[in-house]
Simulated assay, not measured.
Amino acid sequence: MYDWWVAVIIGIVEGLTEFLPVSSTGHMILAGSLLGIPDSDEMMKTFEIVIQLGAILAVVIVYWKRILRLFGLSKDKPRSGRGMNLIHILLAIVPVLLLAYATKDFIKHYLFSPYTVLIGLVLGGILLIIGEKSKTEITAHDVDELSYKQAFIIGLWQILSLWPGFSRSGSTIAGGMLAGASRGAAADFTFIIAIPVMVCATGYEMLKSLDQFTSNVFGFFAIGFIVSFVVALLAVVTFIKFVQKFNLSYFAYYRFIIAVLYWLFLLR
């Protein structure tokens, strides 16, 4: 059993990186290596699932009005366009969920390694720069202006997130910009579709890890969950404001720096 401060550190890493375009998987592997957590530690794998749920809850809190509108439970009207609906969500999440289920064993066996994460960090950073430098005409300035075609294209770009280190938010935001969405619209849609994708993924993994939920780890799990929730809430709100003023190239440069440090200190 690990000390409480390990739960705090991992919770902070998860909360900060889960929804930023920097790859939470890469950072979790890096943090685990630095803390001396073995890859075979089943309790910590379950802990990571729990703190992901904390991060998901943060996004639900931020977008609760839009979520209610999706199910016809809110009287709020779209600010522009015809409004985002459940068809947009399904078009964006079905491709990645189907492929993830079909290739889950391959991904875990071949792609969850420090070397593949490093490659994902670099390639994902390049994609962010390409998205920012693209001259694609913006046709969706707000998430409610996204077309079904754009939602589906973003969903296809999300498939890249199955490669650890690529970053789900990074691939979908960059892909959304390449599809004609503004940076803000792509970010909003990315966060919203993260909810069903992550609920499915974490729910599936949690069902396989129920034996790890024992009374002696409850406090450790609770600390990580709360820390992840609070930090993710702050990170999402801050990122939404950031993308309105700055481009995403800064995150790409950060990814390159992390990849270099990763290589120098852990892989050599």
Rank of each mutant, 00 (worst) to 15 (best):
L123R: 04
E48S: 14
L128E: 03
Q212Y: 15
I159A: 05
Y254G: 13
A232G: 09
I193P: 06
L53I: 15
S147W: 07
L91R: 01
F246V: 13
L30F: 13
F221P: 12
T172Q: 08
A100C: 01
A252K: 05
A232I: 09
Y254F: 15
R168S: 00
A222P: 10
A55S: 14
S23H: 09
Y262P: 08
P38D: 05
F242P: 07
I12W: 05
G175L: 06
I107E: 04
K241C: 08
H88R: 08
A232L: 10
P114Y: 02
F189N: 01
L146P: 01
V237S: 06
K65L: 03
K135A: 12
G170M: 04
K75H: 14
L35M: 11
E205W: 14
L267H: 15
A174C: 07
V260P: 03
V60N: 02
F47K: 05
G170E: 02
F256I: 11
H141Y: 15
A181F: 00
F47E: 04
V217E: 10
N85E: 01
F221V: 12
A187I: 02
A55I: 13
G170N: 06
G120T: 00
A151F: 09
L248T: 08
G11L: 15
I93R: 05
I107H: 04
K133C: 08
E14C: 01
I173Y: 11
L73T: 00
Y63L: 03
S249L: 14
L261Q: 04
G155F: 07
D142Y: 03
S171D: 02
D105S: 08
I159H: 08
A235R: 01
